[in-house]
Design a protein around this nucleic acid. Structure first.
Lengths: 225, 225
DNA sequence: TATACCATACTTGTATACAAGTGCACCATA
DNA sequence: TATGGTGCACTTGTATACAAGTATGGTATA
């Protein structure tokens, strides 16, 4: 597992959680990998207690499977889980952007505008690696504008199921049409144009279409069934 | 806190989680109550470790607030949390019942039919206390039919925010029109009539309309803001 | 050689001890 | 009396020890 250093005020549990999420999402911890509390706590230089609390939390989100007295494992990719996460993302994103159209304020516009402007800047400079983080922030900001930020947070762990499969795509969508999508979404929200906003969300999510068969043929050992 | 005995195979952590959820939902543990890990672990006759794991999980769902080195408290009723839970329930219930119309099978019909028949039986016999449990089961079964049972489970803890406010209503909806709602929903699903099904869900959830002002006037000390 | 068995080295689950920080009550002092 | 300080009894966070179950590999035996 790849580890970095603990933030100053960060608790050992939050540190473990952050490291585990990053490594699962990036597939550094591969689906099916056996993990042991002793081994990981040593790697992170923390004791078993806070590490275990993090593992238990991820097990609740089905990202880790715990078999008592046998071992714990990074969950295999479960198409049903991926589908449920995808379904949930689609219905909440669409409902939330509609609400955002109702709740948008000048401050909200400024928040989204700053983000999109940065995306456009980095895109024009070819600094595309900065865009992923801004992408996530943009979506979160829409939830904030719609006053649904708890929902975003509650769902974020579950979305790892969806996102790690995207990371497995042989050719991740490296064309950055998403930046144009975000600009269009922002304009729709400014115009309080719900219909267009919802269409844009669906189009946007459609870009993340994944070809399960192709991924499975490359990495059959990562899949559950 | 009200405690019962641990199930045979139940882990101490799951036992603590079950007890905490029940007591928070029933308002036996009142909003704002200070809880201490030592005190509760003694009450449940388990050690701090598994109890703490349960508390941490509920803190993630904002049902408990932990202030390090100061204390932990049952979260006050936060209208924003209640609204987000309500919003989430509405959009997922409607999307899921639409999916159920597509995915319904003979087994699914049997599952729902058995449940509704029991509800109707208990209602005719006046054994209305049995209906609450069946109500929850019915909704869960719709998620199962739609193959979205993980979403139901992920959301269930969050819905406690919504449900405990319902329990505070001076006159909880004791009329059992909900049984008729369930019968109508089942028929709509059997007919694959999505439009009617969605209308029924919205009508059904409308019955749980809560009068925040009224509750707040009775128990202002339970509210956050 | 094949098989049954047993020690051993793991695993997670739980209990307990210790660390560090907070707040309050009490007491001394001005 | 009012005020400031100090110790103590709490809190949660973390580390560690122990309990109980599982799998595996080696060994003795048929």
């Amino acid at each position: 597992m790849i580890t970095d250093t603990k933030y100053p005020r960060e608790t050992a549990r939050d540190y473990a959680l952050r490291m585990l999420k990053e490594n699962i999402l990036s597939l550094e911890l591969k689906p099916g990998t056996a993990i042991s509390e002793n081994e990981l706590s040593a790697a992170l230089k923390i004791s078993r207690t806070p590490l275990r609390e993090a593992i238990v939390e991820l097990a609740k989100a089905y990202l880790i499977e715990i078999y008592p007295q046998k071992g714990s494992f990074i969950s295999l990719i479960d198409p049903k889980m991926v589908e449920e996460a995808r379904f949930l993302r689609r219905i909440t994103d669409t409902a939330v952007i509609e609400t955002a159209c109702d709740e948008i304020t000048d401050e909200g516009i400024a928040l989204l505008e700053d983000n999109v402007a940065l995306q456009e800047y980095y895109l024009s400079k070819g600094m595309t690696d900065k865009i992923f983080e801004l992408d996530n922030q943009f979506h979160k900001s829409i939830y904030v504008v719609a006053k649904k930020d708890i929902i975003y947070e509650i769902h974020s762990t579950l979305m790892i199921h969806f996102d790690r499969v995207r990371n497995l795509s042989v050719e991740t969508v490296k064309d950055f049409k998403v930046v144009g999508d975000h600009r269009a979404m922002l304009e729709a929200i400014k115009n309080k144009d719900k219909k267009t906003a919802v269409e844009l969300v669906n189009k946007h999510l459609g870009r993340y279409q994944i070809d399960e068969k192709e991924i499975r043929s490359h990495r059959p050992e990562y899949f559950k069934a």
